[in-house]
Design a protein around this nucleic acid. Structure first.
Lengths: 340, 340
DNA sequence: TTGTACGCGTTATCAA
DNA sequence: TTGATAACGCGTACAA
């Protein structure tokens, strides 16, 4: 690890000159010196020490990406295909902009904030915030923040948010199901907060606008933890007998339910129709191929990252950015045939 | 962002004393002063500046995780379920050990190495190294390195490696297929380097030990890029007509092939048997459920990270660590019925 | 055109 | 038991 000081010593010049050449401030350096320094730099393969630079300039070139994990859901958040695709898009954008990504995964918002302060990150990307998390973050951290898929009022007020038109996506799909003659349509998710609540709202609006009523027994609450999932799926399959169709809050759940149904001899879409949400690989590679609501997850990550970078660069950006959804009609939702 | 200097000023004492209290070097500090400092620390929510600390101590508490991307395969490596599960395990271990993870994704090994030097990372985790990458890295970087799934001779010589018994895993599966009466068994992958070559070797050994011969036309080379995949799968389905079974190098390919076959009216396992490798969610959630070779991807990540941390801590570790595989018998490989 | 000197926040050494 | 000061490597204002 050679330093500027060392280079200056070897070349018999001052650190300022070396530093100026490195940063292209060559207006005030003679061409001859430039050449000498540049040649030497290549020779010794100079790499600046980021810590010293950050300390001197009070910036870090780091984007913090904080994922608030839900303790009840996954062993590790990165194993969720949605999350990894999102991070993929984020990572790529950050890298291309010459920044670094520092990933924090924790269910403890205070821990996350300590890390963020410690590293003096230039900007923050937040995913999975709920309740008053937003307030607590914005009290401690004064640099640009962009949230992803945040629905809490505090989030909306305080931050820039990149989201999706979840409500409409679900509305469109349920509407489509009803057009095909389905009457008893269940909604399946593991909770009714944030994004899931928005989708649930779209589901209910579609029912209402088509003159169908909603009752509590039409909500299928799945328990996704490893130790619960089998029992939970059994119960859902049992309840599903009375239904024409199930609107699932994610592709993953849709595929899991279809597998459980098939194992019990129930056929999709002949006996029951199933729709998913997200349009991940899982649904694309299932047979029958999953009818689902498409969203571009990678694009969401890219958009969130570039928006944050714009803000760091002092540009104005919209505060609420909402990506569109589209229906992907494949083979798991078909016209209702028989009476139940 | 309050600093030690500021705290010392407020409390009318020296930075040394404050620093000592913070680091628990309380042998030489009077109880009274300790109390004062500790109380004040809580009040102001002091967070250390990592850059200054790293500069002073010449360490970073960062583990660099470098993924060498194959330009021909994915838009973004993180979208590969295998990779994200691996990273999940790594991230968790690093975090639990009080370190930070810095992720580099690039197809350019020199770029990766520059980043690693810049950040002065305490250790390096390498995935996807091929050819002479290993030599180039070890020339520039002198701190502990652990590779994952590296098979090159240079890699083996220079580094600690955490891998899998790929050869045996594939051997066992092909052996099992042959026991069930299959004779013409194809091997499918996108290349024959590194890990894939090891699996290919296991496949060939199983053929040989069972008195079956291998010929070039038994290797199905899939082209996984978006623009090629459909054509590639068409070709593979066509060639598959002459075969009893296909040993696929990954679950992803196995599932893709099964979908393509099904779309053409070919039934698995009735018409042809298919086996995968890795045991990912994709195979578990397919129907018929995929018969595959299990490896614990997350555990591999955990083991690589803890091995690296051990080395950083000065502990001795084995140089070659190989995880076992197990056969997961599900529904896509069945006894051969009809003559072809 | 080039060089000197200082500050960034922390830790470590050594003196008081 | 406490404090003053140097050092880490870089960038830069200002002096030469």
């Amino acid at each position: 690890m050679i330093t500027i000081k060392e280079i200056a010593k070897q070349l018999n010049m001052s650190t300022t000159t070396v530093s100026n050449v490195i940063h292209g401030k060559t207006k005030e350096v003679s061409p001859a010196t430039i050449k000498i320094v540049e040649d030497y730099l290549k020779q010794v393969d100079y790499v600046p020490n980021i810590n010293a630079r950050n300390l001197a300039q009070n910036e870090s070139k780091i984007i913090g990406v904080a994922l608030k994990a839900r303790a009840d859901k996954y062993e590790n958040l990165l194993m969720d295909p949605f999350v990894s695709e999102l991070i993929g898009g984020i990572e790529e954008s950050i890298r291309n902009a010459g920044y670094f990504m520092m990933l924090y995964i924790s269910s403890d918002i205070d821990k996350i904030m300590r890390q963020v302060s410690t590293w003096n990150v230039d900007g923050l990307l937040l995913f999975g915030m709920l309740g008053d998390d937003g307030i607590r973050v914005s009290q401690k951290y004064k640099k640009p923040i962009v949230c992803i898929d945040t629905y809490t009022i505090e989030g909306i007020k305080h931050f820039v948010n990149v989201g999706l038109d979840d409500e409409k996506g679900c509305f469109d799909m349920v509407n489509y199901m009803i057009e095909l003659g389905h009457k008893k349509i269940a909604f399946l998710s593991d909770n009714l907060n944030g994004v899931d609540y928005a989708r649930f709202s779209g589901y209910k609006r579609a029912l209402k606008e088509n003159g169908l009523s909603f009752s509590e027994d039409m909500f299928f609450k799945i328990r996704p933890r490893k130790e619960d999932i089998d029992e939970s799926l059994d119960e859902i399959c049992e309840r599903a007998k009375d239904f024409d169709a199930i609107m699932c809050v994610s592709d993953l759940y849709a595929v899991q339910v279809m597998c459980a149904l098939k194992d019990k001899g129930v056929n999709v879409p002949e006996d029951i129709s199933i729709a998913g949400f997200d349009d991940t690989l899982l649904g694309q590679l299932h047979r029958p191929a999953l009818t689902t609501v498409h969203q571009s997850v990678k694009e969401k990550g890219v958009l969130a990252a570039t928006t944050l970078l714009d803000r760091i660069g002092g540009k104005k950006t919209p505060k609420q950015i909402s990506l569109p959804t589209t229906l992907v009609i494949r083979d798991t939702v078909k016209a209702r045939k028989k009476e139940k």
